[in-house]
Design a protein around this nucleic acid. Sequence first.
DNA 1: CGGCGGTCCTGTCAGC
DNA 2: TGCTGACAGGACCGCC
Length: 274
Amino acid sequence: MPEMPEVETIARQLRRRVEGKRIVGVRLSGLPLRKPVSPGLGAALVGRTIRRVRRYGKYLVLTLEPKAFWLIHLGMSGRLLYHEPGRAEGADHTHAAILFSDGDGLEYRDPRRFGLLALYEGASPRAIPEIRSLGKDPLEPGFTGEWLGRRLRGSRREVKSFLLDQGVLAGIGNIYACEALFGARIHPGRRCATLTGRECGRLAAAVQKVMRDAIRRRGTTFSDFRGADGKAGGNQDYLAVYMKEGKQCVECGRPIRRISQGTRSTFFCQQCQR
DNA sequence: CGGCGGTCCTGTCAGC
DNA sequence: TGCTGACAGGACCGCC
C-alpha cells in the first residue's frame, strides 16, 4: 500500500507525536511478517526513548536512546496508528502495540504481513542493510534529469521497472510510477536507453511533482491507507491513470489502457505516452 | 543483466 | 446466499 508519500505522511505525523516519548510497554503478536520480527524487539524497546523519526525510501527508522534503531516497513497493508489513552486498541492484525509513559500508544497493524519490524544496533541508520541498499530519494536535490540520464544510459530495461527498483530510486511504487510516466508523457514499456535528455528531464520533474503533490495531500488512499492519525489521504482524487482503465484520458479523452509488466498492472494512455 | 513467475498473507469484489 | 478466482500500494528469490 504505502509508497513514499504515504510513508512520509506518517513520518511527519509521528514526529510531532512520539519524539521524546519513553516506551514503557510492548506487546507483539509473535507472528512472522515478511521476515520473523527481531526476537529481542519487545524487550529492547521497553525503557527506551524515541529521539527521531526518519524516512528512507518506504522505510521508517526510529532512533532510540539508549542508542538503537527500530526499522519499520509497512509492506502492502501496514498501518502505524497513534492514539491517546483509553482508545480501543488490540484490533485484529495488530503485530506491535506500544505504550508510552504518558499513556499514549502506537500500533503497528498489517493484515497481509508483508511488512517488516526489526531492531538494529550500530552507529547510524545508514549502517542498516535495508537502508544501505536503497538508491536515491527523488526529493533529494541531486535527483535531476542529468542524474537520471546517466543512470538510464546503456540500460535495456523498461523504464517502468527502472522506476520501481528501490536500489536505484527509493520510494516509488506502482501508483506513482504510472502517474509519473503519464506526467512525463513517456510510454511505460520504453527501454531506458532510448530516452532522450529532454525526456529524462521531463521524467525527473514529473516524479518530483507527483511525489510532492501526493505528500501535500497526505497520501493516496486507494482503499485502505491511513495516516498515523487514522485518517485517509486526499491524493486519490487527483490520479490521472492509476486504476482508470477504460476511463477517458484527462488530456486526449481516449480510454486509459491497462497492461501487465511482470506481475504488476500498468495504466497509461497510448495516445499521450510515447 | 533483466524479465518472468512464484512466494509470503489477508481482504475484497466480480461473476457464477 | 455462498463459493471461486483474480487481484491489491511490496519485496525477494530462483530460473532462464
